[in-house]
Design a protein around this nucleic acid. Structure first.
Lengths: 326, 326
DNA sequence: TTGTAGGCGTTATCAG
DNA sequence: CTGATAACGCCTACAA
């Protein structure tokens, strides 16, 4: 900036004013400054700017693990929205480890980010945010959370899954659910069971097996369900990963999907089109999730003073080939 | 720091010395300072530190698109290595858009990152890095690049793919290759063709169809190959995405894989286990790719003064169910 | 071994 | 409208 000032023969302050539009500057001077900036290929230093302003154009994002196929599109959603508003993304993988997450959270703050987007680990009790940049919680929102958040209508999704199976004539249905300490897992089951109740169908507890959202547990849980008598004609798996385990289990049991047993899954990840059969699944708008969270955060950053808000995004039933009419 | 200094009843400089180990400090004082730091929950400000040191603990990373299933594990590899050395990741999606990429590159620099990891867009001619932080190029390295880089042994991979098919008795083979302006695509074909030559097998040009690495083109290219006379008994697809297109095309043609036609793919992404049949594929060590690039970069950051280095990582043939012995 | 002071590149304040 | 000047928080000579 100093060089620019001398080159344009103005003071440092004027250069700053031109750059930030923080005070009107005579046209001649402005032109000279802009020219000098261009000549010198000047780019403002984010660090000193942040230091002075007490805020950078960084958005910190903490997620469990980018290798989990659910998160890339969430991240991309955030980045796209952030990029539009000239913010950059500082990405952290916390591995569902509360310690790592808190460490990251603290560390992030000393970059003076404009805001933070957090997908909390399963058992994180977040201290309600005190000072510091605004935080938006996403996907799974801890019980005590008082700030902004964006979530998916998990219960409605579970409900829709059940309705679909019921409509297709299924009555004896098994569930491979997610871990009971995870809100989203809980909600999906709740919705599902509600829909069954509404249709006067019952489901006894042993027909609800608890897995870990991963392929492995999907496999074993499904195996257990297949041994029940009467054998369910359909299974609701609470994640796509578990659904792939279910498919494997069905195959291993010399059964066929959907001929012998139908599956409705949850997530709607890209690869569900590629399995055999392609999976009917409750699609979560993952990109939108990130995009929306970022928008909310930006509003907050820009000082909008609405009360803490929870945006809930709808799921969508994607019908493919894993459910058969009975 | 000021607060800490007064609380521990020492000077600002001493606090700094304790924090950075930049000068020996009497044990009593050190203890007092550490105590004060703990009491106040002090965290050094990355911005001011970076400003002063002219370098932050950020590593900038520019990739084409995190939603492309190849990249998440690369990113994770980088983050893991970086995290160990207390560096943080600034992630940018450049969408194979040279403009966006250059913009990001410039913008990144004014965060004073310790280094930059770049997966260049297809047709990027990078200016050889002048001043600024060290840059490591990854995966696809532009022709003129003089700095460090990490790549995959694409040619050897293509070679291995061919050898496998040949060993399984295939003689008439089709190729669905990637775009000819992409180095990696070129190399894979080269390796494949070399292996065929070595086995005294020939492949005429129309048996090599050029796609875009995506599913769509995999489908259409495969369709064309299936109409050739004689019909190939096997196809080498240069990406997993194209392989899924190939599978669809085979199905649409009322043929069966691997019974009527075998497939060897390239990438070895996770979902290739889930297709029907599971894909035999040349696995690229994507996580290692990121991990290695980060290590190389860290060495460079730490001032190691070796000449520009290219690390080439080996691929691995993962045999699954899409190739049949003839 | 400890303390002091200057400066990193910006922005904000305030006086001309 | 323009230009000094004082911070922002930290590091590092250098002096004590």
């Amino acid at each position: 900036m100093h060089d620019i000032a001398s080159r344009a023969d103005v003071s440092l302050g004027t250069v700053s004013h031109v750059i930030n539009g923080t005070a009107p500057v005579r046209d001649v001077l402005k032109k000279r400054v802009l020219q000098a900036i261009d000549d010198l290929g000047y780019q403002p230093n984010h660090l000193s700017r942040g230091l002075r302003r007490n805020q950078t154009n960084l958005i910190g994002m903490i997620i469990p693990d980018i290798m989990n196929p659910f998160f890339p599109s969430v991240v991309r959603g955030v980045e796209d929205m952030a990029y539009k508003a000239s913010y950059r993304l500082l990405l952290c993988n916390a591995d569902n480890d509360v310690q790592k997450e808190t460490a990251y959270l603290n560390d992030l703050r000393s970059f003076l980010p404009a805001g933070i987007i957090l997908i909390p680990s399963l058992d994180h009790k977040i201290a309600s945010q005190g000072a510091g940049p605004p935080v938006v919680c996403m996907d799974r929102v801890p019980k005590g959370w008082k700030g902004d958040s964006v979530t998916v209508a998990n219960e409605a999704g579970g409900h829709a899954a059940a309705e679909h199976l019921i409509e297709m004539g299924h009555k004896i249905i098994g569930i491979v659910r997610g871990p009971s300490n995870v809100v989203t897992a809980e909600e999906r089951v709740t919705g599902f069971v509600k829909a069954m109740k509404a249709a006067r169908l019952s489901i006894s507890p042993e027909y609800i097996q608890e897995g870990q959202f991963d392929r492995e547990s999907g496999y074993t849980c499904t195996l257990r369900l297949l041994n029940m008598l009467p054998r369910p004609t359909a299974i609701f798996t609470a994640s796509d990963l578990m659904a792939t385990g279910a498919l494997a289990a069905i195959k291993a049991s010399k059964l066929k999907c959907p001929d012998d047993i139908s599956i409705v899954s949850f997530d709607g990840l890209a690869f569900t089109e590629l399995t055999e059969p392609a999976l009917t699944s409750i699609f979560q708008p993952s990109y939108q999730l990130g995009y929306t969270a970022a928008r909310l955060l930006l509003d907050r950053i820009n000082g909008e003073d609405f009360p803490p808000q929870n945006v809930m995004l709808d799921t969508e039933l994607k019908i493919r080939d894993s459910v058969r009419r009975i």
